[in-house]
Computed example of a mutant assay.
Amino acid sequence: MTNNASDNASGNASDNASDIANDRLIIRISPAWTRPYLRLARLDRPIGTWLLLFPCWWSMLLATSAPGYQIGSPFAPLYFIGLFAIGALVMRGAGCTINDMADREYDKKVARTATRPLASGELSMKQATVFLGIQLAIGLAVVSQFNTYTIILASSAILLVICYPFMKRITYWPQAWLGLTFNWGALVGWAAIRGDLSLPPLLIYVGGIAWTLGYDTIYAHQDKEDDALVGVKSTALKLGEKTKHWLVFFYGTCSLCFAAAGWLMGLQWPFWFGIAGLIFHFFWQITTVRIDDPNDCLSKFKSNRNIGWIFLAGIYLAATVK
């Protein structure tokens, strides 16, 4: 299970039910012995990496976008962009590894997840632990490139990552914990540039949590029937047919927080075109999502990568006219 339980409650996996796609390019071109590790880290499904990465990039660019602010080296933004990309890739993989280690017994019971490397026995817990250690070591190497304040701040997120797999067993709001975890980069991105925290990155963080509540509730609707059978909880089960009303609240809160962060920073007019773009995209999601259609839910969930690019473009273009 990644964020939810399953697409099929059967104990035996089928090719159609499994969430593993062996035709992905990275799987096809990789040596056979590496493929279980690639699937364990979800490197064949990059959407999670994007959703983890964007808050880092947003906040980093926001920190450099205030009128009159000068960063030391002209190459520093590119360097940080690269570091955050590597960090998001390995830490998302580490999070998925921890999740599958914790959920392996649940995953065996459902068709969509029964073929995952740990649930199927393709990898052992010892192999997964070593692989997790390698990913965390790479993440630590990335974090060590930042200032001391950022190192401490970024490292503290591991507690959120470790706790997340257990939230869906005890609360109907695991998506809120996922929001706390996935948007931590909004704080780290700012701290990496400025060495402190202030209200704008906190607003990005709160807005990001609301964003995650929206997109992951949509995602959870794929699995609501099987979640109930397996015994795990989600906002899809909690909100049910009221989901669209809550999406208005989640995405509205996100838009207001993001707009307030840009206003506090004094960003120029391109930023507000970005805000308008993401509001339009949110409106499209809310009005067209079919919560009883798993394929449409997955499509709407993945479309949130566009939100990331729209907001990023607004911040970047605003910085070019400051």
Rank of each mutant, 00 (worst) to 15 (best):
Q135R: 09
F146S: 04
V248P: 00
P77K: 09
R104F: 10
A111R: 01
I152V: 13
P200T: 04
P294L: 08
R24N: 03
A192S: 14
W173D: 00
G262F: 08
E105H: 11
G139W: 10
R290N: 15
L213I: 13
N147Y: 04
M91V: 05
Y149W: 10
I134S: 12
W33A: 14
A66N: 05
H221T: 12
L140K: 04
Y164I: 11
V161F: 09
S198M: 13
Y69L: 06
W57R: 01
F273M: 12
L213T: 10
T2R: 13
W33G: 00
K302W: 11
E105V: 04
D23P: 05
P77T: 07
F258Q: 02
G207I: 06
G189Q: 01
I162K: 05
A111D: 01
P36S: 07
A41R: 02
N3I: 15
S299G: 02
D19S: 15
T148F: 15
P294Q: 11
L237E: 11
T97G: 05
G68S: 06
C254K: 00
Y149K: 08
M60R: 03
A114H: 09
T115G: 14
R104M: 04
L52F: 07
E225W: 01
M167Q: 10
W177E: 07
H221R: 11
Y37Q: 06
V142F: 06
K109V: 00
Y251I: 13
S299H: 13
Q222N: 13
T217D: 09
F258S: 07
A137T: 15
A176D: 00
V90S: 02
V230A: 10
Y205F: 15
I275F: 02
Q285N: 11
M167C: 11
A76F: 10
A186F: 05
I47L: 03
T97E: 06
L78V: 02
I286D: 05
W211S: 03
I134P: 04
C297E: 07
W50E: 00
I307P: 01
I81W: 11
I209C: 09
F311R: 00
P31I: 11
